[in-house]
Measured scan of single mutants.
Amino acid sequence: EVHFESHGEEQAMRVVKMLKKRNLTVEVKVENNKWIITAK
Rank of each mutant, 00 (worst) to 15 (best):
4 F>E: 03
9 E>G: 07
27 E>D: 08
18 M>R: 08
13 M>F: 05
38 T>G: 02
24 L>K: 03
26 V>N: 00
16 V>A: 06
25 T>D: 08
20 K>A: 07
33 N>D: 10
4 F>K: 03
14 R>M: 09
31 E>I: 13
31 E>L: 11
27 E>G: 03
36 I>S: 03
15 V>E: 01
28 V>A: 02
10 E>D: 09
38 T>A: 03
8 G>D: 15
28 V>Q: 01
13 M>P: 01
1 E>Q: 10
30 V>P: 01
35 W>D: 00
13 M>S: 04
18 M>K: 05
18 M>E: 06
17 K>N: 12
20 K>T: 08
5 E>Y: 11
6 S>C: 15
14 R>F: 08
1 E>H: 13
25 T>L: 12
13 M>E: 04
27 E>V: 12
29 K>A: 05
28 V>R: 00
16 V>S: 03
10 E>Q: 10
39 A>P: 02
12 A>L: 09
3 H>R: 14
27 E>K: 06
17 K>W: 13
16 V>N: 02
9 E>Y: 15
7 H>E: 13
28 V>C: 09
14 R>V: 08
15 V>K: 03
31 E>Y: 09
23 N>S: 07
16 V>T: 03
21 K>S: 12
37 I>K: 00
27 E>I: 12
4 F>P: 04
15 V>Y: 08
2 V>H: 14
10 E>L: 12
27 E>L: 10
12 A>C: 15
13 M>R: 10
35 W>C: 02
11 Q>S: 09
20 K>I: 11
12 A>W: 10
25 T>K: 11
36 I>Q: 03
10 E>V: 11
10 E>H: 08
38 T>S: 07
17 K>M: 13
17 K>Q: 11
4 F>Y: 12
18 M>P: 02
35 W>M: 02
16 V>Y: 06
21 K>M: 11
24 L>F: 15
35 W>N: 00
10 E>G: 06
8 G>C: 15
1 E>C: 15
26 V>A: 02
17 K>T: 09
3 H>F: 12
40 K>F: 13
2 V>P: 02
10 E>W: 13
11 Q>W: 13
30 V>G: 01
15 V>P: 00
28 V>G: 00
1 E>A: 11
18 M>I: 09
38 T>V: 10
6 S>W: 08
32 N>W: 05
9 E>C: 15
9 E>Q: 11
26 V>F: 08
24 L>R: 03
31 E>F: 10
33 N>E: 07
29 K>L: 08
20 K>G: 05
30 V>L: 09
36 I>A: 02
1 E>V: 13
27 E>R: 08
17 K>A: 14
23 N>Y: 15
33 N>F: 09
5 E>I: 15
8 G>Q: 13
23 N>G: 15
39 A>F: 12
19 L>Y: 03
6 S>P: 04
37 I>Y: 00
21 K>T: 08
26 V>K: 00
12 A>V: 07
16 V>H: 02
37 I>N: 00
23 N>A: 06
25 T>I: 14
36 I>Y: 09
26 V>D: 00
32 N>G: 13
24 L>V: 05
5 E>N: 05
32 N>Q: 07
5 E>A: 07
12 A>I: 08
21 K>F: 11
5 E>S: 08
10 E>M: 08
13 M>C: 14
8 G>F: 14
19 L>G: 01
12 A>Q: 01
27 E>S: 12
25 T>Q: 12
22 R>N: 06
5 E>L: 11
11 Q>K: 06
22 R>E: 02
37 I>A: 00
5 E>D: 04
9 E>N: 04
9 E>D: 03
17 K>H: 08
5 E>M: 09
4 F>A: 02
9 E>A: 11
21 K>E: 11
18 M>T: 04
39 A>Q: 02
33 N>Q: 06
37 I>P: 01
6 S>R: 13
13 M>T: 04
40 K>T: 11
39 A>E: 01
9 E>H: 11
26 V>L: 04
32 N>I: 04
11 Q>Y: 10
2 V>T: 07
3 H>Y: 14
2 V>N: 05
25 T>E: 11
40 K>R: 13
7 H>Y: 14
23 N>L: 10
26 V>T: 02
23 N>K: 09
13 M>W: 08
38 T>I: 13
8 G>I: 14
7 H>V: 10
35 W>A: 00
35 W>R: 00
28 V>S: 01
15 V>R: 04
19 L>N: 01
3 H>N: 07
40 K>M: 11
19 L>H: 02
1 E>D: 10
40 K>L: 09
24 L>H: 04
34 K>Q: 05
36 I>G: 01
18 M>H: 06
14 R>T: 04
19 L>V: 01
25 T>R: 12
29 K>D: 03
34 K>F: 08
16 V>Q: 02
31 E>C: 10
20 K>W: 09
11 Q>A: 13
18 M>Q: 06
2 V>S: 06
13 M>Q: 06
34 K>H: 07
32 N>F: 06
38 T>W: 05
31 E>R: 07
4 F>M: 05
27 E>N: 08
32 N>R: 05
26 V>P: 02
16 V>P: 01
1 E>S: 11
9 E>K: 13
11 Q>H: 12
36 I>K: 02
22 R>Y: 14
3 H>A: 08
11 Q>I: 10
22 R>V: 06
19 L>D: 00
30 V>I: 12
24 L>I: 06
39 A>R: 02
40 K>I: 12
21 K>I: 09
8 G>L: 14
23 N>C: 15
23 N>R: 11
13 M>H: 04
30 V>N: 06
29 K>I: 09
29 K>R: 13
31 E>N: 06
9 E>M: 12
40 K>H: 11
1 E>K: 10
20 K>V: 10
35 W>Y: 08
31 E>Q: 09
24 L>S: 02
29 K>C: 13
12 A>M: 09
10 E>N: 07
8 G>K: 12
18 M>C: 15
2 V>E: 07
3 H>W: 12
5 E>K: 06
22 R>I: 09
4 F>V: 06
13 M>G: 02
24 L>N: 02
26 V>Y: 06
29 K>G: 02
20 K>Q: 12
38 T>H: 07
32 N>A: 07
38 T>C: 12
7 H>L: 12
32 N>E: 08
15 V>T: 05
19 L>I: 01
36 I>R: 04
6 S>D: 02
34 K>N: 05
34 K>V: 13
6 S>K: 08
33 N>L: 05
3 H>T: 12
34 K>M: 11
14 R>E: 08
7 H>T: 12
30 V>Q: 09
26 V>R: 00
21 K>N: 09
19 L>F: 05
25 T>V: 12
12 A>T: 05
15 V>M: 12
37 I>G: 01
11 Q>R: 08
37 I>S: 00
32 N>S: 04
10 E>R: 12
24 L>D: 01
4 F>S: 03
22 R>Q: 10
38 T>E: 03
8 G>N: 15
16 V>L: 08
17 K>F: 14
19 L>P: 00
1 E>P: 11
7 H>P: 09
27 E>T: 13
24 L>M: 13
21 K>G: 10
30 V>T: 05
4 F>G: 03
27 E>W: 11
10 E>F: 08
33 N>V: 03
11 Q>V: 08
34 K>R: 11
2 V>Q: 07
39 A>N: 01
4 F>Q: 03
21 K>R: 11
3 H>Q: 10
35 W>H: 01
16 V>E: 02
16 V>M: 06
22 R>H: 11
26 V>W: 03
3 H>S: 09
36 I>V: 08
9 E>V: 10
28 V>E: 00
18 M>F: 10
28 V>M: 05
15 V>F: 10
28 V>K: 01
18 M>S: 05
28 V>T: 02
20 K>F: 12
20 K>H: 04
21 K>H: 07
29 K>T: 09
33 N>C: 14
16 V>C: 15
28 V>N: 00
39 A>M: 08
40 K>V: 09
32 N>D: 11
8 G>A: 13
26 V>Q: 00
35 W>P: 00
7 H>Q: 10
11 Q>D: 12
22 R>F: 14
38 T>Q: 03
19 L>W: 05
6 S>T: 14
10 E>P: 05
26 V>I: 08
5 E>V: 14
29 K>Q: 07
11 Q>C: 15
39 A>W: 14
29 K>M: 07
12 A>E: 01
34 K>D: 02
8 G>H: 14
36 I>E: 01
15 V>H: 03
22 R>S: 07
1 E>T: 13
26 V>S: 00
29 K>S: 07
13 M>Y: 06
3 H>L: 12
